[in-house]
Amino acid sequence: MAACLTSLRSALLTGAALVAIGVAVAGCAGKSNITTGSVPKSSKPIGEMNATELRNAADSIGQAYEKNPRDPQVGMNYANVLRMNGRNEQALAVMQQVAISNPSNREVLAAYGKAQAAAGQLEQALNTILRAQTPDRPDWRLKSAEGAILDQLGRSGEARQRYREALDLNPNEPSVLSNLGMSYVLARDLKTAETYLRSAVAQPGADSSVRQNLALTVGLQGRFQEAETIARQELTAAQAEANVAYLRSMLTQQNAWKKLAADDSGNTN
């Protein structure tokens, strides 16, 4: 059960939690992560792809990366889709090269830190983010990325402070509100999480991952029909049904959520 919550924590903090559960994590009983990005034109956003489409996207973006490995956007998209395919070590290697080629690009450094975190290098990831941040010109994206890493380290109080600092710099930013909401999911304070996620969804820039995080949070409270309705707004019927079915199976196990809480109690604040 502790391993299950660890996988869930990783999925939540990549920005596409419910999609990740249905596609990448594939359930704690099976094999086991966002930011979403776009693959070459005419393709779906990464967060809407199934497993086969994600593998094809990795091949397609990989070819673009080979042609221009210094391009920051191509590199970040490639690392992102690699992580969605569970290829965290390769994603980290890609971001290392992109960071070397773009040492002053703070968006790249934030993505590099996330890749380190996904590969389990949490302290290194935190150091990367802190090095990229500048006190005289703080970047809200780096604040949010720092918060996500702190959440993975179990330092939820510090994480939420970073999210609030990010919101001071960029008020009502949906991705930050979503991260803040998911921080409360990790602490199993689902009512508070839902409040922040509904606020995130209401913002003009909210993307699919934000709405899927809301669907996840609603589903974790046992409101499966409502969760499926939210999920269906972004996914195909089959994807939405698969996600809700997974949540239902996970949470209808005897005392499943209580066991998760007990097994991971030492990792939350």
Rank of each mutant, 00 (worst) to 15 (best):
A3N: 10
C4N: 13
C4P: 04
A11L: 03
L12R: 02
L13W: 06
G15Y: 04
L18W: 02
L18P: 02
G22W: 03
V23F: 05
V23R: 10
A24N: 15
K31H: 12
N33A: 14
I34H: 04
I34D: 07
T35I: 11
T35W: 10
G37E: 08
V39F: 05
S42Y: 05
S43E: 08
K44Q: 05
L54R: 07
N56A: 12
A58C: 04
D59V: 13
I61D: 03
G62F: 03
E66T: 10
E66L: 10
K67M: 11
N68M: 02
R70W: 03
P72A: 07
Q73C: 00
G75H: 07
N80Y: 09
N80M: 09
M84Y: 15
N85V: 10
N88K: 09
A91F: 07
V94W: 06
M95V: 03
Q96P: 03
S101H: 05
N102V: 01
S104K: 12
E107M: 08
V108E: 06
V108Q: 03
L109T: 00
A110V: 01
Y112L: 01
Y112N: 00
K114Q: 14
Q116F: 00
A117H: 00
A117V: 01
A119E: 04
G120T: 07
Q124V: 04
A125F: 00
T128A: 04
R131Q: 15
T134V: 12
T134L: 12
T134A: 11
R141K: 08
R141W: 08
K143P: 01
E146N: 11
E146Q: 15
G147K: 00
L150E: 01
L150P: 00
L153D: 02
R155A: 06
R155W: 02
G157Q: 13
E158H: 08
R164Q: 15
R164W: 00
L169D: 02
N172F: 06
P174T: 01
L180T: 07
G181W: 00
G181M: 05
G181K: 02
M182Q: 08
R188M: 10
D189A: 11
T192Y: 01
A193I: 01
L197V: 06
S199N: 14
S199C: 02
Q203K: 12
P204A: 07
A206C: 05
S209R: 03
V210M: 05
Q212T: 13
Q212Y: 14
G219A: 03
L220R: 06
R223G: 09
R223Q: 15
Q225C: 03
T229H: 08
R232H: 10
R232A: 12
A237R: 13
Q239N: 12
A240K: 01
A245Q: 14
R248T: 11
T252A: 13
Q254W: 07
N255M: 09
A256Q: 13
A256L: 08
W257A: 15
W257K: 09
G266C: 10
N269S: 15
N269R: 14
